[in-house]
Write a protein that binds this DNA or RNA. Structure first.
Lengths: 129, 129
DNA sequence: TATAAACCTTCCCATCATAGTAAGGTCCAG
DNA sequence: CTGGACCTTACTATGATGGGAAGGTTTATA
């Protein structure tokens, strides 16, 4: 398969496939005589893996580690699980942060009449220490 | 006040104050004869406002709009409230998205033994379509 | 067989908010 | 008057992604 075909099949853009190769998230692939990258079925799976790890919010360094584990048939599943649970912790922290913002804003908005007049507790609150 | 002092007082770095001025989030400030930016008390409030709007997750274009409303004494509080509530909607959507990721990961991690062996439903799941 | 379309390659640029650095000018205290 | 702390602009980088240009390859069609 050429890069366009594997991009289609995996859902990762050709642009990003080259980028992932360049930064070492996926290994360098063999080339045709003309220099075209040549992919097989396993590569479709690998790229799909990368895409889905990204969709779960893993950082690029984590994805790189995960791809290494995915390719290593002697991996310990404990390592994978550890990464996953650490990521859950970060996700929950982010959720807490966003919930805090949302709560604050909802409270401020609730205090604001929201009419034609200029008085606005939202603006008032935002410039005080 | 010079930029360092107002940075200290507002909690916005001098670097970012110059940047905000350049991209028009805050108005251009007057200069001393030597070209130094000269700030007053109101500018401390304005910068604090920008910082706190950012901390609530508003985008830069939104902050720009909010600063405009903050400076406009004939604003309608309804406009501010509308922006705030739209942002709440986006925050809640983001929270839903992250919650989905977290839930998926927790489920996968729960299914993974997490021991010395290579079998791992997390990795298996991530390369399937 | 010639050519055009549809690929591929590398390289460069842009995003966005933020930080760092360098080179040079200014202000103040000793 | 000099040293240090401040200021100025301008350039660089980040990280994941997209866009485009210039040029080579493959394939289908006239």
């Amino acid at each position: 398969m050429n890069i366009g075909e594997v991009a289609q099949a995996s859902g990762v853009s050709a642009k990003m496939i080259r980028h992932y190769e360049e930064i070492g998230v996926i290994p360098k692939i063999s080339r045709s005589m003309a220099g075209y990258r040549q992919y097989g079925e396993a590569d479709v799976h690998m790229l799909r893996f990368v895409r889905q790890a990204r969709e779960l919010g893993f950082s690029m360094p984590e994805v790189k580690t995960l791809v290494g584990l995915w390719r290593n048939k002697r991996r310990k599943s404990g390592e994978v699980k550890k990464l996953a649970l650490e990521h859950v912790v970060r996700l929950e922290a982010k959720i807490q942060q966003l919930s805090g913002m949302s709560k604050t804003l909802k409270h401020l908005a609730h205090c604001c009449k929201g009419d034609e007049r200029p008085e606005c507790p939202i603006l008032d609150k935002l410039d005080s220490p």
